[in-house]
C-alpha cells in the first residue's frame, strides 16, 4: 500500500493566537480506514478542513495522490470527498438536485445513473424529490454522504459521522463505510466514540491538543497497550494482603474479599500460575476468578491524561 494522503509537519494558528495544530505528520495509506480519535477541540476538524481546502494552513504541506493541496488544488480536491460534522444543507433544496449540484462543483458531467446508484445504496432513492427540511436528521446525514460521494472520490473524510445518531443508524453507517472500503475508497473518520474507532478502523490515530500522539494498527495498539486485569474473589475476607504476595502488587477490589491483579497479557510470563500457587500456599481459598482486557477507551484515557 502507498500513501494517498501525505501530511508533512502541518501547523495551524488561528487569528486569535490559538494553536490548533502543532506540527502534524501523517501518511494515510490507500484503501485503509483510519480513525482519528481525540477529545473535542483536539484539532481533528481543523486537520480535515485544511486537507479539504476549507481552512488555510499556517505552515507545512499536504499532498493528495501526489498533488499539493494548494499549488495543485484542482487535482488534489477531485480525489477528496468530505462529510462535515454539521448538517450544512440548503433547507429548501431537493435531494437529487443538491447531489447533482455537488457533482457539478467537482467538475463532473451530469450522470444521473451513477447518482441513482449512490442514493439507492444510501436508501435515499425514494426520497430523491423530497425537500431537505422534510427529512429526518439521519436522512440528512445520508444526504451529506451522498453529496460527498457524488463525484466518485478516492478518499472520503467523515467528520464525526455518527455524532448524535441513534444506535441503529450508527450501525448502518458503519456498514456503509465498510462497503465503501470494499470498493477501494480510503476512509478517514474522526470520532470521539472509541467504540466506533475500535469497530471500524484498520489504524487509529490519537490527537490531543493539536498533536498527533500516535498512529498505529488497531490490533497492534490494543495488544501493545492492552493490560489485562484478573479479579480474584475469596471465600473469606482478607483485611491485610500477606507480605509473601507483595511482588504481585495486588490490591483490594471493592471489598476485602476480592483481590485485583494487573498483568501484561503479551508479556513472556504473566505470573498467573505463580500467583495462584502462592495464594494457595498462603492458605487463601478462592471462590471465583475473572479476567478482563482493557478497552481502547482505557488506552485513550491514559494517553490523553499523561499529557501536560
Amino acid at each position: 500500500m502507498s500513501a494517498i494522503v501525505s501530511i508533512d509537519n502541518l501547523t495551524k494558528t488561528y487569528d486569535g493566537g490559538f494553536q490548533a495544530l502543532k506540527g502534524v505528520t501523517l501518511d494515510i495509506e490507500e484503501g485503509e480506514i483510519l480513525s482519528l480519535l481525540g477529545p473535542n477541540g483536539a484539532g481533528k476538524t481543523t486537520l480535515i478542513s485544511i486537507i479539504c481546502g476549507i481552512t488555510n494552513p499556517s505552515t507545512g504541506r499536504v499532498t493528495v495522490g501526489g498533488h499539493d493541496i494548494i499549488s495543485d488544488f484542482r487535482a488534489a480536491r477531485r480525489l477528496l470527498g468530505l462529510v462535515p460534522q454539521e448538517i450544512n444543507l440548503q433547507p429548501l433544496e431537493r435531494v437529487m438536485n443538491t447531489v447533482r449540484f455537488t457533482r457539478g462543483l467537482f467538475g463532473q458531467r451530469p450522470d444521473d445513473a451513477y447518482l441513482e446508484k449512490i442514493l439507492t445504496q444510501l436508501s435515499l432513492w425514494d426520497k430523491r424529490d423530497a425537500q431537505i427540511n422534510a427529512l429526518s436528521g439521519g436522512m440528512k446525514r445520508r444526504v451529506l454522504i451522498a453529496k460527498a460521494l457524488s463525484h466518485n472520490p478516492r478518499v472520503l473524510f467523515l467528520d464525526e459521522p455518527t455524532a448524535g445518531v441513534d444506535v441503529e443508524l450508527r450501525k448502518d453507517m458503519w456498514e456503509t463505510v465498510r462497503e465503501l472500503q470494499a470498493e477501494g475508497v480510503t476512509i478517514i473518520l474522526t470520532t470521539h466514540y472509541i467504540e466506533e474507532a475500535e469497530a471500524m478502523s484498520d489504524r487509529i490515530g490519537v490527537i490531543a491538543k493539536g498533536e498527533l500522539m500516535l498512529v498505529e494498527e488497531k490490533t497492534a495498539l490494543m495488544n501493545r497497550m492492552g493490560q489485562k486485569r484478573m479479579r480474584i474473589d475469596l471465600q473469606v475476607p482478607l483485611p491485610e494482603i500477606p507480605s509473601s504476595l507483595a511482588q504481585y502488587n495486588l490490591s483490594h477490589g471493592e471489598t476485602p474479599s476480592s483481590l485485583v491483579y494487573d498483568y501484561d497479557a503479551k508479556g513472556e510470563r504473566t505470573g498467573i500460575t505463580r500467583l495462584l500457587n502462592d495464594l494457595s500456599a498462603a492458605g487463601i481459598v478462592l471462590r471465583d476468578v475473572q479476567t478482563s482486557q482493557s478497552s481502547l477507551e482505557d488506552i485513550f484515557v491514559s494517553l490523553v491524561e499523561d499529557r501536560p
Partner: peptide, 18 residues
Amino acid sequence: YFPKFIGAIYEVLSAPVS
C-alpha cells in the same frame, strides 16, 4: 451570504473551483 450562514459554503470551498 446564505450558504455562509447555514454552512453549506463548505462544499464550494472544498471543490476544485477557482
